[in-house]
Design a binder for these strands. Structure first.
Lengths: 278, 278
DNA sequence: TTGACAATTGACCGGTTAGTCAGTATTATA
DNA sequence: TATAATACTGACTAACCGGTCAATTGTCAA
């Protein structure tokens, strides 16, 4: 399974430079120092690779930001921390960001569009919960969907600076600047455009919640590939808890926290956080 | 030359659905009901087709918006008219809009990137001049570049609604909503991020102005393909004026106005408006 | 009706691609 | 060390691509 990692890392570099279509499997394998056949031992097809890449990064990105929004204690700093984390992530994974922008060309690929829309809506959900936490209900009741839209607009607009110019940017100033803009819009907007009705017109309800069985399956799949570690032990305990709840909430929360920083289990941590509501 | 038109129209449909790379010349010609060879009578290559498409639409879009910003009399309405025109155009040409978004995947194609960056900067210039006209210099001196960025962000964010959902949207309300947001940001922002210095770091000076000779060449090229009309007569007079200025400004302005609404001469009208400064 | 010219066709070419598979090398096991 | 299982290789295939050009069809003046 180490090969999978290697291929993904090398493929990102090439995709970012040349785009997905323009990069051949041959090029990737040469860049990895392996044969073409070896590629197909790790991935069933070239498409499976790009999907794996998208999942790998979007899962990390989405669950990191969600964790942050749930766990920054001070309302005062939340918005700042949010923007900072977003752009820090864009900066760190700029190669993947480039791929994401380029591969909007795949927007005719049904599977791809559904996948992206799914992560997009998870992010929207997170932003919305942040907005609802930060501002008075009466203040933003009618305008909060516009606000979410504007925040996403700021994110996408300013992140282009990271992706297309290799200029070192002052993340702190940028975050401050966007905090001010967001607060201005949140506290003074009176003419909303995106109403709840409008949202519902193009948002079919977010696919039914992930079920216990699905989570168990993901856990099982992950367990077979893990070596002995705190994460593995935590995951086993969480699996038992999922089958038959016995542990106190505090312990469950701690276990979920244990697996939060491992890339392979981050997603499970996110799913369990939602499932156990800890 | 009628074939060219036909190919461009049919190609847009296919590109919007499938993307540029994924659409073969064969598919295009089949969709047009012509042979593959006939395609190469109108365009030297597949690339030349996409460049022609980009030029055709971006020229119209850019010069229409620029004309509007220069000619809406009332400052009161300008911003509203601006947004309305933008989204109206996105709605009308949503197929081309989709191509534009998808073909950011061509960002490794040097020629393409330069072309797009050129139109992007023309648009930025227009927006900046609007901002400078609408707001007090002392109010937006330090924040106007951020403001331009935010306006572009609003444009790109909300235009996605037109491109990805076939929902009839209330353009008037949307424009009003964005006017309010823009005014809020313009009048209250105190923490700028994009400074003039930063702009200059990634904006090499906008390519030297188009010269008189270049304009003459474009006019000449256009004249040979034109049938007798007011536009043709105006263009001939403007050509003479360019070679030896004799006419009063009012007449020049009128002649430039005459050729503004013809798709083929719109760009010339834009260039001459800048050249004669009328 | 003829013949010269222009417009149009589609089989064809060289090149590239994703994906396969028979065979080879490596490792683990007994 | 012998055997079995696994990991890996790279030549090969079938399909498709953009682009060409000899052959065919259409047009119109004489």
């Amino acid at each position: 399974m180490m090969k999978k990692q290697l291929i993904m890392e090398k493929a990102i570099e090439l995709f970012a430079k040349q785009g997905f279509e323009a990069t051949s499997v041959q090029q990737i394998t040469e860049h990895c120092g392996i044969s073409k056949g070896a590629f197909y031992l790790s991935f069933k097809s070239k498409d499976e690779l790009i999907f794996a890449l998208v999942d790998h990064f979007m899962i990390q990105f989405t669950s990191d930001i969600d964790y942050l929004v749930r766990n920054v204690a001070s309302d005062q700093n939340l918005l700042y921390e949010f923007y900072y984390a977003i752009f820090n992530s864009f900066q760190k994974h700029s190669d993947f960001g480039k791929i994401l922008i380029k591969e909007q060309s795949r927007s005719f690929d049904e599977e791809f569009i559904i996948k992206m829309r799914y992560y997009d809506r998870l992010m929207e959900k997170t932003i919305l919960s942040m907005v609802e936490r930060l501002y008075e209900e009466k203040e933003v009741r009618d305008t909060k969907y516009d606000l979410v839209f504007c925040i996403k607009g700021f994110m996408s607009m300013y992140s282009q600076l990271f992706l297309f110019y290799n200029v070192p940017l002052d993340l702190k100033l940028l975050s401050q600047s966007l905090v001010e803009k967001t607060n201005l819009l949140a506290r003074n907007t009176t003419v909303p455009f995106i109403t709840k009705d409008l949202i519902q017109m193009f948002d079919e309800p977010l696919g039914e919640e992930v079920t216990k069985e699905q989570i168990l399956e993901i856990i099982q799949q992950e367990l077979v590939e893990m070596e002995e570690s705190i994460e593995q032990e935590s995951l086993i305990l969480l699996k038992q808890e999922l089958l038959a709840p016995t542990l106190p909430r505090a312990i469950v929360k701690g276990l979920v926290e244990n697996i939060r920083n491992h890339p392979q289990t981050k997603w499970i941590s996110y799913l369990l956080r939602n499932y156990f509501m800890v």
